[in-house]
Structures are given as structure tokens and as C-alpha cells.
């Protein structure tokens, strides 16, 4: 049980990362590839947060006077993930705007077909 508890978050995070990378590598539909990217990013974020976790910790906020500093979880990964989430949104929305353009030009989202009919 203990071993399970030690690794379950990491397992979840890397499970997401692997599914995401696999989707991006195997799928040929462009929107499916972007869905894979979003799953990949969620996995990376989950991994970063679980790196900073401390057993029996509290959130790093002094919301009432009784909270002690020594039990707080690591705030740095949280700050990093905040940045990473916003960057992820930026990349995804740019990618999806390209999907709209792609469909206007080629009439399909299949990357294989697009490669064939380019020239």
C-alpha cells in the first residue's frame, strides 16, 4: 500500500505523458494531435506539482494565523505550473487557429493527405 502511495501520482502523470506523446506520434488527424498535446501538457503539470508535494502538508498560504510554515508544500513548482498552463493555452490556441486555416486551404485535417497534395 505504501509503495502504491509513493508512486501513484507519478504513475498518473507519466501515464498521461505517454498517452499524449503516443497520440501525437500515431494519429494523423491534426486536431487529434493537438488533443494529444493538451494531454501531454496536463501530464507534465501534474508531474511538476507532485514533485513539490510534502506528506501531511498544507497549502502555502498564510490564510489564518494558526498555520505553521514548516508543513507547507513547495511553492516553486506551483509557480512554474502556473506559467506552464498559460503557455500551454497560448500554444494550443495558436495551433487551433492554424487548424482553421488548414481546413480552409486543403479541405481536410489529415496530415498524411496534406503532405501528398502539397505541390
Amino acid at each position: 500500500m505504501n509503495i502504491l502511495y509513493d508512486y501513484i501520482y507519478y504513475a498518473g502523470a507519466f501515464g498521461l505523458i505517454f498517452i499524449g506523446i503516443f497520440t501525437m506520434m500515431v494519429k494523423r488527424n491534426y486536431i487529434k494531435v493537438i488533443i494529444g498535446l493538451s494531454i501531454l501538457e496536463t501530464g507534465v503539470n501534474l508531474f511538476l506539482i507532485s514533485v513539490g508535494y510534502i506528506s501531511n502538508g498544507t497549502a502555502p498560504i498564510f490564510s489564518n494565523p494558526g498555520i505553521e510554515a514548516k508543513n507547507m508544500v513547495d511553492p516553486v513548482p506551483q509557480a512554474l505550473v502556473l506559467t506552464a498552463i498559460v503557455i500551454g493555452l497560448a500554444v494550443l490556441s495558436l495551433a487551433l487557429s492554424m487548424a482553421i486555416r488548414l481546413y480552409k486551404h486543403f479541405g481536410t485535417l489529415d496530415l498524411q493527405q496534406i503532405k501528398e497534395q502539397r505541390w
Binding site: S38, I49, A59, I61, V81, L82, I85, G88
Partner: peptide, 25 residues
């Protein structure tokens, strides 16, 4: 995992806005 800030960001940006953008696309 005691990260309320990130949870808010993930729920509002990662879940809501990203899904909206996908649906529009």
C-alpha cells in the same frame, strides 16, 4: 496535492477555455 492556485488556473484555463477553443475550432 495542496495547490489551490494551480487548481483554479487548471479549472478555468485548462478545462474551460481550452475546451471552448477546441469546440470553436
Amino acid at each position: 496535492l495542496h495547490a489551490p492556485d494551480v487548481a483554479m488556473a487548471e479549472a478555468s484555463i485548462g478545462a474551460a477555455l481550452v475546451t471552448t477553443v477546441f469546440v470553436i475550432a
